[in-house]
Nucleic acid binder design. Structure first.
Lengths: 196, 196
DNA sequence: CATTAAAACTAATAATTGTTAGTTTTGTTC
DNA sequence: GAACAAAACTAACAATTATTAGTTTTAATG
């Protein structure tokens, strides 16, 4: 039988993971069957196991790829010496970019993490919590420096993260909004509000 | 065998629906089995079918109960004669209250609607789209009246709805934040921003 | 106490699930 | 072209799924 070539610069495992992300987003992890995934890949279900260990291993790969991307971004920006508002703006923009460029993966990480098995579930939640904590520290520094209003930092972080997460609804709506307009609108809304 | 009494002022169907909402939230609709639900209710699985028609019927009940609650609230407030910012504030506060008082149901409606069957799936999406459209009209009126900055109304509505939706993470964190503090922080953030 | 309807039970069904075992095909290297 | 490993295949497994059929128990009514 004909072999399906993996995409250029990617192993077959990568192809499977990518198709799985699309399928998991569409159907949800539990409702997405290995047979259905195999069909998308162009192969019979048992053949998948020549490349992957298990269904849940695919989910792990997706969730941690996303989680690591956010963690690494935070590592990459110089938190100590930048203005808090500049930091927050760049973080918001990064979240929006991730949502637009890795839609399926981010969606799956946001929605299907609860189906991770231990110890991956705990690790994932710990990593997310640590990420939120770092954002809270940025906010609190901003308040002390007088850049930000005094608010409950946790609620503010939650508000920002949830808002950008909501971009998962955008593709379904097919609004023609440029990425720049999208980013600017959200950044302004979340930082300066909407009241004149 | 002993019958399990339904909660006071509620039929057994109501009890099943309530337990189902908790289970669907915890496990996801697909991973939640009727046997597990039956166990929560205190009964064998087939006995559930004396009260309900099917598993997906339960999901329908939950999703539309939530959708209707939001639709009815918008109907109940006098959109024409109130200031736009007052309207938005009361709507945000209602969303937060719903999230706090009907946590499981709102969570399930937000996360598991994709498992609805037709025509309920289409109806649900239409109803949500119509709701968003009404919010957009409120925002656009506010811009024309000079109350609000000129922004992309869809993005602003999406930002607000997503932000309040994010309260689904709150219970897991067990932060001790009063409802009043929570509401005020979010309302201020979403309307006036966080920059001093 | 007899009757009756609601609601519990047990047993079973057909379908689908992730995954394994064992076999054959493929494509590359000598 | 022979050899070999990678990766496809078929067949099958045991477990779990929602749901139905048929029977018994419960609790309230007369």
């Amino acid at each position: 039988m004909a072999r399906i070539k993996p995409h250029k610069n990617g192993t077959k495992k990568d192809l499977i993971t990518q198709k799985a992300a699309a399928l998991f987003r569409l159907k949800g992890y539990s409702s997405a069957s290995m047979r259905h995934l195999a069909e998308e890949v162009g192969v019979e279900a048992p053949s998948l196991y020549n490349h992957i260990g298990s269904k849940s291993e695919i989910l792990q790969a997706i969730c941690f790829k996303v989680a690591n991307a956010f963690t690494f971004y935070l590592d990459s920006i110089d938190i100590k010496y930048a203005k808090c508002t500049t930091l927050l703006e760049s973080i918001i923009r990064f979240h929006i970019k991730m949502m637009l460029t890795s839609f399926n993966e981010v969606y799956v990480a946001n929605h299907e993490w609860k189906h991770l098995k231990e110890p991956y579930l705990s690790n994932f939640l710990m990593q997310r919590r640590a990420y939120e904590k770092r954002l809270m520290e940025i906010m609190e520094a901003g308040m002390q420096a007088g850049e930000l209003k005094k608010t409950n930092a946790y609620i503010s972080v939650l508000t920002i993260l949830s808002a950008v997460r909501g971009l998962e609804f955008l593709p379904a709506r097919k609004k023609d909004i440029s990425n720049a307009e999208l980013e600017n609108n959200m950044v302004n809304h979340l930082l300066k509000g909407i009241i004149k």
